[in-house]
Design a protein around this nucleic acid. Structure first.
Lengths: 196, 196, 196, 196
DNA sequence: CATGAATGAGAGTTCATTCAT
DNA sequence: AATGAATGAACTCTCATTCAT
């Protein structure tokens, strides 16, 4: 009915995706509007038709990136321990060759999040911890995990350990074999949580 | 014949400290030479009498900061577990009100380190893990820790958990009580490592 | 859909011409981007849309200037001696009132050329000598010039004398009448080169 | 009688010589006060005790350089032609390996002179032409050179040719053998000037 | 709607010069 | 007299943003 209108939202996605691609190759502080425009195959000024300024664009790009990354993908049937294994598996995969680019964005994103300039990160992080907490509670109900364990507290350090392992991978410490570290951690978790 | 003589090294410290102060209030990518000069109470060009360029200054500032932070302070007498407690104590203290500023710098520093632009960080990080590894080995020799545990692997995930906890504190997740998390983690460590 | 389209090459010419105008009023080492921008009637940053940096701009300006100056304008029918007369005529004209500005640029250009920072000058200079050499050879074939004269050697000092005369004009020595000097030189050339 | 006074003039010479040494290694537009100070082995500010500013210093350095270079060294007994040969010999020698450094200064000096910022150059140049003119006149009186030649005019183009040859040497044109060019020029001069 | 072109504001850096000692 | 130290003013260059078409 209305005259041919460009789908504004679609165009925004296009730009955001270009921004993410660009971000995967350059760190945020080096990312220019020109880079994004080139990646998107459009003029710089066109970007300003869809975003008020660079900051807005970057923020929305991060948001989009996180949404895409954190497809809940709830594994209903799994126990907490199985879930933990899965998470670690995911971490390892993420650092395998073909996904290094996403990690670059994750780093920038965390940096912004920690600096308080991307508050969504905190929410998402808490969501992820809460999801794991739920799992613990379910397992406790099913008698798989000791009841005297505070699920939130437990998840907090387990999650922390996972993040820390990511950090070590990022720093590329040749401290030791990631495989063994994960196994050892999982063993500790199991011993700690299992009913007598 | 007797013009004012300045201890060059001292002046450098002065500027570096100004840079660190400035960094505690602004993130690295927003830090200008002008900020540092103002903080140091001198003209911008004076800074260039002591540092070749901004990059050099920043790098040396990080280095200085790390040196100051990581006074080895080896606690000879302690067992690994006691040492772990101590580390966590330190982490908690670091996040108490009056040291928030240092944390800002730590974040920037880690960001640079991960991005590969401050390789010293990796060394220091490995040094810290190695120090803990030594402790484990000593305790194994004294029969305090199970011998079938690979010290490096063990330290790797323990260290990771510590870092992850820091990260959670940085993100200010109100997930739960830090005190309890630390206790829970320490318990898990103890159960995992103790001889039958 | 139809934003203003500018012929990039044309714009470059515009800037280059502004640079040349500016150069005719200031010596190279005092020439600022701001001067060129003002002369061209645009913002400084606009210049950087068309040239990577000042050096590039200056180099291209010199190149452009030389091209404009050295229109081959080969005078097919003339003998070497007639050509020499013509060159001297040209030199004299160049120093007449309304072309003084171009001379300023020529000086800078020669300075750069001698300093080795504008190697094109050498090529052009050699081209000019070669052109004259050709003329001599033709005349030798036609029996107008003694065959025992090495054309290159001959041209070398004749060209040198021409350049030296330019230099004297530049220094504005009131040594004596340029007209007579040229005549005298031409006579010497003629006597030296003519067949018995 | 008076307390130990530094001989101001001596100190100035010292600085000037340092400037000249520095100039022989760097071109004028790249020469910093710091370079001169370093070469002279003194602090930058000391230079300002003896010279009002950089410009003054450079000008005096050029003046000093010229004075040192142009020791009249009048060769009383020689004929004009012999003198010409000598000059060319000098030119060739100047371009031999061990004196290239002085040439750098000469170039800068000429550049300044032509630009009108070093008027002394003109005087000196005219002095040199006058000296040669005198020679011609003497030879005419002795019947060695045709009387119908205007000495000034003659010297003008001969000098010009000499300068032009220097220029060719500076541009490093591989046009041809300097030796032969000089010989050819001298022959032309001789033919032109000799009495029947 | 799209965008080429233009730009102002500001960044890092250099260097002749001044000044206190 | 000598100079280490400090610096203001100026320069080149960058880039997010605006605007006319």
């Amino acid at each position: 009915m209305s005259p041919k209108l460009v789908d504004v939202e679609e165009k925004r996605q296009e730009i955001i995706e270009a921004a993410i691609t660009a971000l995967s190759e350059k760190e945020l502080s080096e990312l220019k509007i020109a880079d994004i425009a080139q990646e998107a195959g459009m003029g710089q000024s066109t970007i300003y038709e869809y975003f008020a300024n660079k900051d807005q664009l970057i923020k929305q790009a991060f948001e989009y990136f996180l949404k895409k990354l954190y497809v809940p993908q709830k594994n209903e049937g799994l126990t907490a321990l199985e879930e933990f294994e899965l998470v670690l598996e995911k971490v390892k995969k993420q650092f395998s060759e073909n996904q290094t680019k996403e990690i670059n964005i994750l780093i920038d994103l965390f940096y912004q999040g920690i600096k308080g300039e991307f508050p969504q990160l905190k929410e998402i992080y808490e969501g992820y911890l809460n999801y794991l907490t739920e799992k613990i509670i379910q397992d406790q109900e099913q008698g798989l995990i000791r009841e005297d364990i505070d699920p939130q507290v437990f998840v907090s350090w387990v999650g922390a350990a996972f993040d820390g392992i990511s950090l070590q991978l990022l720093l590329k410490t040749d401290n030791c074999d990631i495989e063994k570290v994960c196994d050892s951690l999982l063993t500790a978790i199991e011993i700690y949580s299992r009913k007598e």
